[in-house]
Design a binder for these strands. Structure first.
Length: 563
RNA sequence: UGGCCUAUGGUGUAAUGGUAACACACCGGUUUUUGGUGCCGUUAUUCUAGGUUCGAGUCCUAGUAGGCCAACCA
């Protein structure tokens, strides 16, 4: 038995240390708390992977909690999409929770805070309050309403709840410290008036709790042991603890466990953006076809593109967890999907940029059925039949009249193998008035058939080409994607808008010919088009029209050398 | 002109005071009926300067660089 010592990331170390200090393992509990105001993207997958991963590791419950405290931005559509994405990734939540379920509890606690003189109603405009707040380098000053009496505060807050005031007229603030070096402690707002229908509570409430007041207390109510979030929430930790400790004073019997917030750096991916605001701009301005456009870094986009849950989870695991700012090379994500698909995707033949090839010594009208291996990486995958005939399509790039020794493909006078078929030799080509090649003529060696066992079939020729028989080919639409942005970090430029880096050629649609076995493939099925890349069947496919998405190309050292 | 956080190859992550490791990327070789896959190999004075220590990537101090914080957003 090899006792392999796996290194722990800093969050796992914190948990291990807590356990060592006497924290009961059974009390471990995590949560993933998205706001339902958009679709999940690959960045969220890191947060999902951390919390749900910890849950799997320690056999601890993980709640899915919708942080739905701002009815102006949130919708049921997003709740549904988020649930679907997390399920698709293969994670299971213990409880489906909503911050809005805690509105009454939160309100009751807020009333206690007011009674204890630790919260007050401020009746200024947001501009006035911003003025008094100071700056990171200058202390703030107290609001004129800061010392309002408890009775007045109580009555005002009740009337806010009763809907007696217009939006923007009053807010409830925690009374902490206007001079704190941490801006968040300068009497943060706990409640604001918002006369908007909420996707779950309807019009029951017209005051809504702010993030800081809601989030920590939701963790506390759910008795989350370790509340993990991204680095930008670090300054919120002091406030998280302040609210938590206040509430603990009068709720410790019901809720004995004090949650702990810890922060990790979020994921950035090269050549894309990760902000919901920017992503929704691409959708709104119809730069992409929707949240699930295969070019989008959303989970739904990646899914449609042909990424698998396994590849995404492997990716997240490889990326690791730390507190450093980072930009992950998108090449790592691409490596992970190739790694997965190489093992699982059946190999087929499809020609994307066809040119006609005629085997002049192959009898006219003759047809053969050849046997092709489905996946050399998987013995269980078996084989299939592929029809062969005198006239084929091959890739235009696979023929050159004259070529040097480095070119392993077809040229005049040179031999090459047709995958799973015969060795052929280039003889001549036919051109149109513009000099464009319209037809290539070749001869074949009838004894060289793949797998026939003859001496001729064992001959080594340098190149192997994929092909489809013209008479049997099925036509299909193939959508080929390039990165959405031409810049490595389109969202990080202070002087330039990310939209300036849009790649105008991120989508290329082409008509291709594929082997007939693909005729009956289903939406979502994934294949390796040999020598080209991995492709899946898009949802736009109908009985009349086959549509493929190119998930990712094969590694191509030849193309790289010719750059 | 404040507070907090971070600094290890091109990118990311490890090394828990004791020989800087792994993955991707890159470059080269090898195998191959996919220029794919697999296999092998090359690529680092651990931001700087001091200090503590027998010994520092790791601890301390200062500097430098980057990030976060002034929404009735989350």
């Amino acid at each position: 038995m090899s006792e392999e010592k796996k290194s722990l990331n800093f969050i796992e170390q914190i948990i291990e240390e807590d356990i060592k200090q006497g924290f009961q393992k059974e009390n471990l509990r995590f949560r993933f708390p998205p706001e339902p105001n958009g679709y999940l993207h690959i960045g969220h997958t890191k947060a999902i992977g951390i919390s749900f991963g910890l849950g799997e590791q320690y056999n601890a419950p993980v709640n899915l909690r919708f942080d739905d405290t701002n009815p102006a931005k949130e919708e049921q559509e997003y709740v549904d999409a988020i649930k679907k994405d997390i399920e698709w990734l293969g994670y299971q939540w213990a409880n489906e929770c909503y911050s809005s379920d805690y509105f009454q509890q939160l309100y009751d606690w807020a009333v206690i805070l007011i009674k204890e003189g630790k919260a007050y109603v401020d009746s200024q405009s947001s501009e006035e309050m911003a003025q008094q707040k100071g700056t990171p380098t200058e202390a703030g000053v107290a609001s004129p309403y800061r010392n309002r009496g408890v009775e007045e505060n109580l009555s005002l807050f009740q009337r806010m709840k009763a809907g007696e005031f217009e939006e923007g007229t009053h807010v409830l603030r925690a009374k902490i410290d206007m001079e704190s070096p941490n801006m968040l402690l300068r009497d943060p707002i706990m409640y604001r008036i918002l006369k908007k229908a909420h996707h779950r509570t309807g019009t029951n409430w017209v005051i809504y709790p702010m993030y800081d007041w809601t989030h920590g207390e939701s963790d506390y109510i759910e008795q989350i042991s370790h509340s993990l979030c991204s680095l930008e929430f670090k300054p919120h930790r002091d406030l998280y603890n302040w609210f938590r400790d206040e509430v603990y004073n009068y709720s410790k019997n019901q809720y004995p466990l004090l949650p702990k917030q810890r922060e990790f750096s979020r994921l950035n991916l090269s050549y894309t953006i990760m902000s919901k605001r920017k992503l929704s701009k691409l959708v709104d301005e119809e730069i992409v076809s929707g949240w699930d456009d295969p070019r989008m870094p959303t989970i739904s986009g990646l899914r449609r593109r042909g990424y698998t849950p396994k590849a995404i989870r492997n990716f997240i695991e490889t990326v690791g967890v730390s507190k450093r700012e980072n930009v992950i090379d998108v090449a790592l994500l691409e490596f992970k999907i190739r790694e997965d698909l190489n093992k699982t995707a059946n190999r087929v033949m499809g020609v994307l940029n066809p040119v006609k090839l005629v085997i002049t010594n192959y009898p006219e009208g003759k047809e053969e059925v050849l046997i092709a291996e489905n996946n050399p990486e998987d013995e269980q995958s078996g084989s299939r039949e592929v029809p062969f005939s005198r006239e084929l399509y091959i890739e235009r790039e696979d023929f050159k009249e004259e070529a040097n020794r480095k070119y392993f493909r077809l040229s005049l006078g040179k031999e090459v193998r047709l995958k799973n078929a015969y060795i052929i030799k280039g003889e001549s080509c036919v051109k149109d008035a513009n000099g464009e090649i319209t037809e290539i003529h070749c001869t074949y060696d009838p004894l060289s058939k793949s797998g026939s066992g003859t001496e001729e079939s064992k001959r080594k020729v340098k190149g192997t080409l994929h092909w489809v028989s013209i008479a049997h080919a099925v036509s299909a639409e193939v959508r080929i994607y390039d990165r959405l942005f031409s810049d490595e970090a389109p969202g990080s430029h202070k002087e330039k808008d990310f939209m300036e880096f849009l790649n105008p050629d991120s989508l290329h649609i082409t008509k291709a010919f594929v082997e007939p076995s693909l005729q009956n493939a289903n939406i979502g099925d994934q294949f390796q088009f040999q020598r080209l890349g991995y492709f899946n069947i898009d949802n736009d496919t109908s009985p009349e029209k086959l549509v493929f998405n190119k998930t990712v190309g094969l590694r191509d050292t030849w193309a790289k050398k010719n750059k």
